[in-house]
Amino acid sequence: MTTSAILTIVEMTLHEAARRRILLASLVCGCAFLLLFGIGQHFVLADIEHQGAKGMLRRGFILNFFTLAGLYSVNFLTVMSAVLLPVDTLSGEIASGVLQTVASKPIARRDIVLGKWLAYVLVVGSYLMLLAGGVLLEARLLADFQLPGVGRGLALMFLESIVLVTLSISGGTRLSTVTNGVVAFGLYGLAFIGSWVEQVGGFTGNVGARDVGTVASLIMPSESLWQLAAHHMQPPVMSQLNLTPFSPLSVPSIAMVYWAVGYIVVLLLVALRGFSKRPL
């Protein structure tokens, strides 16, 4: 593994994101999102004051729910970016022939994959931190409110975005761009619906439904990571009473974090192996 080759690929990928206005578009859309969230928060606060606050607990619940709703939107936008940004970085360059001149240089093919992976983890991670940071900052500045467990929650959301970046990059070593996108979103959808089946199973006590959800989480751990993040970012009483849609009835185990880390490692190894043998 050559560090300089990986860093060259990272730099070029970031340069491409900047030059093709991907970063600018993300920034503009992110600012629009934060503006809208700020306006929403303003109305929520006005409503709380208009109704007459019946104690700090009720105010805290409402603001917690609204801030989590903001982070849920951030999570969704990050998931979209994590799949879409790298979806053609390998498959597109293989199809166009750009990679022929790159791979014929004295660098290992794994350095190309690792460089691109690292660059997109940085881009998507920065996007997540920008949006999530903006949501949390607005909650702090406008309502003097702070979510609990933010550090753990954001770390889990970041882990979820890495899972999806890795899935997208890995698919690109073997699949065409469109097929890769269909598979990545298909798996995300599977995890999403699997999570709801699991929640329904938890609510009704149906063990079979819960098992289906668990299997879906193992196939794609993204939604479980979000649920775990949401669980950590609300007070225990709110979570235990299932007061909001972000309070899972069946809280994913910490083992899901280890599973996700292993999932990333395996996907990355599959990508490295797939690309090393790929005809260019």
Partner: peptide, 18 residues
Amino acid sequence: DQGARAKVGFLPEHFRFP
């Protein structure tokens, strides 16, 4: 071999580029 490619130049038939 990666080392050999350090001393080789290549212009593909359909040269594509970013």
